[in-house]
């Protein structure tokens, strides 16, 4: 009988100690705000394109962090972003619904532009400059290729161009050996499963 009491006391004491430690730890290492939403936001490509159905990257991040949205809605982010978010949220990866297109950049045909400033207002990242009744132009380095400026343009003078492949931006692909390709295939199979 006595030994049972000792065992209960010992285990109970340990449990109490662990509980107190945890309670203190939550106080000491308390983090303000919703860090998950920030972390999700940091993973998103920040194109602000709205293809996920939310008005921008931050709202989508909030929705994902609040378990209101799936992890696979970010189209420009593609598979890599989806996987990163899934890992962060600790959920199963899901297939990205739409194939991400090639990186695009908007271009204003200046001789057709009437200077209405509607596209300037639509651009989520301030990548279009111009003044009323003057040509507008796109700062290519700032453009995220979100397509949001196409809709408001009354004269359809904005084109989406494929970003030119520049020698400086070229990087080596995986080797063309069977083993490297197999590895890639297996990984994608694993991720799909």
């Amino acid at each position: 009988m006595e030994s049972i009491i000792y065992a209960v006391l010992a285990l109970g004491g340990l449990a109490l100690l662990a509980g107190i430690t945890l309670a203190i730890a939550t106080r000491v290492f308390h983090v303000e705000g919703n860090p998950i939403a920030d972390q999700v936001d940091a993973l998103l490509p920040q194109t602000q394109c709205g293809q996920c159905g939310y008005p921008g990257c931050r709202p989508y991040a909030d929705a994902v962090a609040g378990d209101e949205a799936e992890v696979n809605h970010c189209v420009p982010g593609g598979e890599r972003t989806m996987l990163a978010i899934a890992e962060l949220m600790g959920v199963e990866p899901k297939e990205v619904e739409e194939e991400a297109t090639q990186p695009m950049v908007a271009f204003v045909r200046e001789d057709e532009c009437i200077g209405c400033t509607l596209c300037i207002k639509a651009c989520p990242v301030d990548a279009i400059i111009g003044a009323p009744k003057h040509y507008h132009t796109v700062i290519a380095d700032h453009c995220t290729g979100c397509n949001l400026c196409l809709e408001p343009c009354p004269v359809d003078c904005i084109d989406m161009l494929i970003k030119p492949e520049l020698l400086e931006h070229w990087s080596w692909p995986l080797p063309n050996t069977q083993r490297a390709q197999q590895g890639r295939e297996r990984r994608s199979q694993h991720e799909a499963a």
Binding site: Q48, R58, T144, S171
Partner: peptide
């Protein structure tokens, strides 16, 4: 493989900094 890895790392960094700049512009807007 090293060149591939270096290239991918550079690409990821570039995308990250572009995303960060876009985010700032979007927030400012």
């Amino acid at each position: 493989y090293f060149r591939y890895g270096k290239g991918q790392l550079a690409q990821i960094r570039k995308e990250k900094s572009f995303a960060e700049a876009s985010r700032q512009r979007s927030e400012q807007r």
